[in-house]
Computed example of a mutant assay.
Amino acid sequence: MRKLVFPLVLLASAFVQPLTARADAIDDFVLTGNGLDITFSLPASPPGNEMTCPPFSPSCLPGSETAFYLSTLVTTNGVTSVESLSFPTFRFNGGLSLGSNPGRLFGPQLFLPDASNPTFLTGTFDLDAFPPKGGVDDYTLTITPETTATTPEPSTLALFGTGIVGLIEFARTRKRRV
Protein backbone atom coordinates (compact mmCIF):
# COMPACT_ATOMS: atom_id res chain seq x y z
CA MET A 1 0.00 0.00 0.00
CA ARG A 2 2.80 2.44 0.92
CA LYS A 3 4.49 1.82 -2.42
CA LEU A 4 1.30 2.87 -4.20
CA VAL A 5 0.38 5.99 -2.15
CA PHE A 6 3.58 7.96 -2.67
CA PRO A 7 3.63 7.73 -6.50
CA LEU A 8 -0.05 8.71 -6.60
CA VAL A 9 0.57 11.78 -4.41
CA LEU A 10 3.56 12.70 -6.55
CA LEU A 11 1.48 12.35 -9.73
CA ALA A 12 -1.39 14.40 -8.27
CA SER A 13 0.99 17.22 -7.28
CA ALA A 14 2.06 17.54 -10.92
CA PHE A 15 -1.50 18.48 -11.89
CA VAL A 16 -1.97 21.17 -9.24
CA GLN A 17 -2.30 24.48 -11.06
CA PRO A 18 0.09 27.13 -9.79
CA LEU A 19 -1.69 30.02 -8.11
CA THR A 20 -0.65 33.54 -8.98
CA ALA A 21 1.06 35.22 -6.07
CA ARG A 22 -0.55 38.59 -5.61
CA ALA A 23 1.15 41.17 -3.49
CA ASP A 24 -0.61 44.49 -3.12
CA ALA A 25 0.94 46.89 -5.59
CA ILE A 26 2.09 50.14 -4.01
CA ASP A 27 2.40 53.53 -5.68
CA ASP A 28 4.88 56.15 -4.44
CA PHE A 29 3.76 59.79 -4.54
CA VAL A 30 6.16 62.76 -4.67
CA LEU A 31 4.69 66.27 -4.56
CA THR A 32 7.03 69.22 -5.08
CA GLY A 33 6.48 72.97 -5.27
CA ASN A 34 6.74 76.15 -3.19
CA GLY A 35 9.78 74.78 -1.32
CA LEU A 36 7.91 71.64 -0.28
CA ASP A 37 9.00 68.06 -0.86
CA ILE A 38 6.10 65.80 0.16
CA THR A 39 6.23 62.01 -0.17
CA PHE A 40 3.82 59.21 0.70
CA SER A 41 2.89 55.73 -0.49
CA LEU A 42 -0.57 54.28 -1.09
CA PRO A 43 -1.94 51.03 -2.49
CA ALA A 44 -2.25 51.25 -6.27
CA SER A 45 -5.93 50.28 -5.90
CA PRO A 46 -7.03 51.43 -2.44
CA PRO A 47 -10.42 50.40 -1.11
CA GLY A 48 -12.94 52.85 -2.45
CA ASN A 49 -14.93 54.90 0.02
CA GLU A 50 -16.77 57.25 -2.27
CA MET A 51 -18.47 60.14 -0.50
CA THR A 52 -20.57 62.90 -1.92
CA CYS A 53 -19.36 66.34 -0.88
CA PRO A 54 -21.44 69.47 -0.69
CA PRO A 55 -19.91 72.30 -2.74
CA PHE A 56 -17.37 74.41 -0.79
CA SER A 57 -17.23 71.95 2.09
CA PRO A 58 -13.99 72.43 4.10
CA SER A 59 -13.15 68.74 3.68
CA CYS A 60 -13.65 68.77 -0.11
CA LEU A 61 -12.30 70.82 -2.92
CA PRO A 62 -14.73 73.49 -4.16
CA GLY A 63 -17.10 72.23 -6.82
CA SER A 64 -16.35 68.56 -6.26
CA GLU A 65 -19.11 66.06 -6.64
CA THR A 66 -17.55 62.98 -5.07
CA ALA A 67 -14.22 62.04 -3.54
CA PHE A 68 -12.56 59.20 -1.73
CA TYR A 69 -10.68 59.74 1.48
CA LEU A 70 -7.89 58.01 3.36
CA SER A 71 -5.23 58.72 5.95
CA THR A 72 -1.58 57.78 5.66
CA LEU A 73 1.92 58.72 6.77
CA VAL A 74 3.11 61.76 4.83
CA THR A 75 6.68 63.08 4.94
CA THR A 76 6.95 66.83 4.37
CA ASN A 77 10.55 68.12 4.09
CA GLY A 78 11.77 65.25 6.29
CA VAL A 79 9.03 65.50 8.95
CA THR A 80 6.58 62.58 9.03
CA SER A 81 2.99 62.89 10.23
CA VAL A 82 -0.39 61.27 9.64
CA GLU A 83 -2.39 63.28 7.11
CA SER A 84 -5.90 63.01 5.73
CA LEU A 85 -5.96 62.88 1.95
CA SER A 86 -8.87 63.54 -0.35
CA PHE A 87 -8.95 62.64 -4.05
CA PRO A 88 -11.97 64.43 -5.51
CA THR A 89 -13.69 64.15 -8.84
CA PHE A 90 -14.93 67.34 -10.40
CA ARG A 91 -17.42 67.89 -13.12
CA PHE A 92 -14.47 68.73 -15.40
CA ASN A 93 -11.35 67.98 -13.36
CA GLY A 94 -9.75 66.30 -10.33
CA GLY A 95 -6.98 66.93 -7.87
CA LEU A 96 -5.67 66.23 -4.39
CA SER A 97 -6.31 67.76 -1.00
CA LEU A 98 -3.84 67.28 1.83
CA GLY A 99 -4.95 67.89 5.38
CA SER A 100 -2.50 70.73 5.98
CA ASN A 101 0.17 72.23 3.70
CA PRO A 102 -0.23 72.88 0.72
CA GLY A 103 -3.97 72.25 1.12
CA ARG A 104 -6.20 72.04 -1.92
CA LEU A 105 -4.61 71.31 -5.29
CA PHE A 106 -6.44 71.26 -8.61
CA GLY A 107 -5.46 69.28 -11.68
CA PRO A 108 -6.34 66.17 -13.60
CA GLN A 109 -8.20 63.29 -12.02
CA LEU A 110 -5.51 61.02 -10.55
CA PHE A 111 -7.41 57.72 -10.62
CA LEU A 112 -9.77 55.67 -12.75
CA PRO A 113 -12.53 54.47 -13.07
CA ASP A 114 -14.36 56.13 -10.13
CA ALA A 115 -14.14 56.97 -6.41
CA SER A 116 -15.83 53.73 -5.35
CA ASN A 117 -13.25 51.55 -7.15
CA PRO A 118 -10.12 53.71 -7.69
CA THR A 119 -6.84 52.72 -9.33
CA PHE A 120 -4.18 55.44 -9.42
CA LEU A 121 -2.76 56.56 -12.74
CA THR A 122 1.03 56.73 -12.94
CA GLY A 123 3.02 59.60 -14.38
CA THR A 124 3.71 63.27 -13.67
CA PHE A 125 0.83 65.68 -13.14
CA ASP A 126 0.74 69.47 -12.87
CA LEU A 127 -1.40 70.72 -9.98
CA ASP A 128 -2.37 74.26 -9.00
CA ALA A 129 -3.00 75.48 -5.47
CA PHE A 130 -6.06 77.55 -4.77
CA PRO A 131 -5.63 80.00 -3.24
CA PRO A 132 -1.89 80.20 -4.02
CA LYS A 133 0.35 79.80 -0.97
CA GLY A 134 3.25 82.25 -0.89
CA GLY A 135 2.44 83.48 -4.40
CA VAL A 136 3.25 80.05 -5.88
CA ASP A 137 0.50 77.91 -7.26
CA ASP A 138 2.40 75.40 -9.40
CA TYR A 139 3.04 71.93 -7.98
CA THR A 140 4.19 68.72 -9.60
CA LEU A 141 2.91 65.33 -8.48
CA THR A 142 4.73 62.21 -9.65
CA ILE A 143 3.10 58.81 -9.11
CA THR A 144 5.36 55.81 -9.72
CA PRO A 145 4.76 52.12 -9.06
CA GLU A 146 6.98 50.77 -6.30
CA THR A 147 9.22 47.96 -7.47
CA THR A 148 8.97 44.78 -5.46
CA ALA A 149 11.03 41.62 -5.41
CA THR A 150 9.41 38.54 -6.87
CA THR A 151 8.01 36.09 -4.36
CA PRO A 152 7.85 32.38 -5.11
CA GLU A 153 4.31 31.09 -5.41
CA PRO A 154 3.20 28.65 -2.69
CA SER A 155 2.33 25.98 -5.26
CA THR A 156 5.82 26.26 -6.80
CA LEU A 157 7.39 25.70 -3.38
CA ALA A 158 5.07 22.74 -2.75
CA LEU A 159 5.99 21.18 -6.09
CA PHE A 160 9.69 21.72 -5.40
CA GLY A 161 9.33 20.14 -1.95
CA THR A 162 7.47 17.16 -3.39
CA GLY A 163 10.26 16.64 -5.91
CA ILE A 164 12.89 16.67 -3.14
CA VAL A 165 10.87 14.15 -1.13
CA GLY A 166 10.54 12.02 -4.27
CA LEU A 167 14.31 12.03 -4.83
CA ILE A 168 14.93 11.07 -1.20
CA GLU A 169 12.42 8.22 -1.41
CA PHE A 170 13.96 7.07 -4.70
CA ALA A 171 17.42 7.03 -3.09
CA ARG A 172 16.14 5.11 -0.04
CA THR A 173 14.38 2.53 -2.23
CA ARG A 174 17.46 2.06 -4.37
CA LYS A 175 19.68 1.69 -1.29
CA ARG A 176 17.42 -1.08 0.09
CA ARG A 177 17.67 -3.06 -3.16
CA VAL A 178 21.47 -3.05 -3.13
Rank of each mutant, 00 (worst) to 15 (best):
F87N: 00
S64M: 10
G48C: 07
T75F: 06
S81Q: 12
L70N: 02
N101W: 07
S86R: 09
C53P: 01
P88T: 00
A67E: 08
L42M: 10
M51C: 13
L98M: 06
L105M: 11
T39G: 01
D37M: 10
E65L: 13
R91H: 13
T89H: 06
P102H: 03
Y69R: 09
F106N: 05
S45A: 14
S41A: 15
S84F: 13
S64A: 15
T72I: 05
G107W: 01
S59Q: 15
F106Y: 12
V82E: 11
N49P: 05
D37R: 12
R91T: 14
G48Y: 09
F40Y: 05
V82R: 08
G94H: 01
F56M: 11
E83M: 12
F56L: 11
C60E: 03
V79T: 14
E83F: 11
R91N: 14
G95E: 03
P54N: 13
R91L: 15
A44C: 13
T89R: 08
A67D: 06
E65H: 11
G94K: 00
S84W: 10
L36T: 08
S86Q: 05
N77W: 01
P102W: 00
L105H: 02
N101T: 14
P47T: 12
L61F: 09
F90Q: 13
F68C: 08
S86F: 02
G94S: 06
F106K: 04
V74S: 07
P108G: 11
S59K: 14
L85F: 07
L42R: 06
S57F: 02
P47W: 10
S71L: 09
G107S: 04
V82N: 11
T76Y: 07
V74E: 02
L42Q: 07
A44N: 10
P47A: 10
S59D: 15
Y69K: 07
N77Y: 03
L61G: 08
N101L: 15
L85K: 02
P54H: 10
N49D: 10
M51V: 14
E65W: 08
L42S: 08
F87A: 00
C60F: 00
S84I: 08
L85Y: 03
N93R: 12
G33D: 01
P46I: 01
S71Y: 07
G95W: 03
G35S: 04
G35Y: 05
F87T: 00
L42W: 06
L61T: 06
E83V: 09
N77C: 01
S84G: 15
T66I: 04
P62W: 09
L96S: 01
N101G: 12
C53V: 00
T75Q: 06
V74I: 09
F68K: 00
T75G: 04
G94N: 01
G103L: 10
N77L: 02
N34C: 06
F68N: 04
S97E: 12
C60M: 01
N49Y: 05
T72A: 03
D37L: 14
P55H: 08
P43Y: 12
C53M: 04
G48P: 06
T66H: 07
T75N: 11
S64K: 04
L85Q: 01
L98I: 06
S84D: 14
L85N: 02
L61D: 10
R91M: 15
G63Y: 02
E65R: 13
